[in-house]
């Protein structure tokens, strides 16, 4: 852990060397993000609901997903950019060091600029929460926290799976964006609005549903069962599986040479 903190401070220092560029990128990130937000607002300007979900309910779903994704893009960026490590042959260098390999991959790159997205998704989360008509109690607060944590775990697992894929293909294919970006796009709406096929995929194959749909139903009081509170925990299983796959990939790894 202290090693990771060291990585964090190191990257922060190097990033702040270029202050103007950092600030401008920070602002432009805001604009990109605004695009997504704008889409949802526009659509709800014309329509009152989507399959019974109101604008703030959708914004809550949306903010949970973007929070998890941008959090991972800041702190686990190295995993997201894993193909670079392999292609350039730098992965061999990491393997030689007597430290945990996953931690080192995380530490390869930390993208502070994307912190602006984490902040924005939190702002939207707060806006959504303030406007939602929910009677809060300890269970519901717990559900919300688990949703946020689950979202981080889920995206970390997706990044890890995409990275493991690089062991086979060497070059990370664009296809992986379908998994992360595409999933993000789909899951920014409550998945219940889609047809059965989508719901099954988003529940059992890429479990976005466990993070921001089933617990959401509990928060909104549409289901009473307490099981729904703990559904985000299933993402831990997903993470364990993906890490095991990653380690398996490391064992089989043969360098590209340089």
């Amino acid at each position: 852990m202290s090693l990771y903190l060291k990585y964090l401070s190191m990257h922060l220092k190097s990033e702040l060397q270029y202050k103007m560029s950092f600030i401008l990128s920070f602002i432009s990130q805001f604009f990109t993000f605004f695009g997504y937000y704008f889409t949802i607002l526009c659509l709800f300007n014309k329509f009152s609901n989507i399959k019974g979900f109101t604008v703030y309910e959708v914004l809550l779903t949306f903010s949970i997903v973007t929070f998890g994704c941008s959090f991972c893009e800041v702190f686990f960026r190295g995993m997201d950019q894993f193909d670079k490590l392999i292609v350039e042959g730098n992965f061999d260098r990491l393997l030689l060091r007597p430290r945990n390999i996953i931690l080192q991959v995380f530490g390869e790159e930390i993208n502070y600029v994307k912190l602006s997205r984490v902040l924005q998704s939190l702002v939207i989360l707060v806006i959504a929460l303030l406007n939602l008509n929910v009677e809060w109690n300890i269970y519901k607060v717990l559900t919300l926290l688990l949703m946020m944590l689950g979202s981080i775990t889920l995206f970390l697992s997706l990044f890890t799976i995409a990275a493991t894929y690089c062991f086979i293909t060497v070059k990370g294919l664009e296809i992986r964006h379908v998994l992360t970006d595409g999933g993000k796009h789909l899951a920014q709406y409550p998945i219940g609005i889609f047809r059965k096929g989508f719901v099954l995929v988003l529940t059992y194959i890429v479990p976005f549903g466990f993070v921001n749909y089933y617990p959401l139903l509990y928060i909104l009081g549409r289901v009473e069962k307490k099981v729904y509170i703990f559904s985000p925990i299933t993402t831990i299983l997903y993470l364990i599986v993906s890490l095991l796959l990653f380690y398996k990939g490391v064992k089989k790894y043969s360098s590209v040479g340089s």
Binding site: S21, L24, S28, F31, T32, G35
Partner: peptide, 9 residues
Amino acid sequence: KGIVNIFMV
């Protein structure tokens, strides 16, 4: 990045 990104978005 910066300005050009904002323009493009």
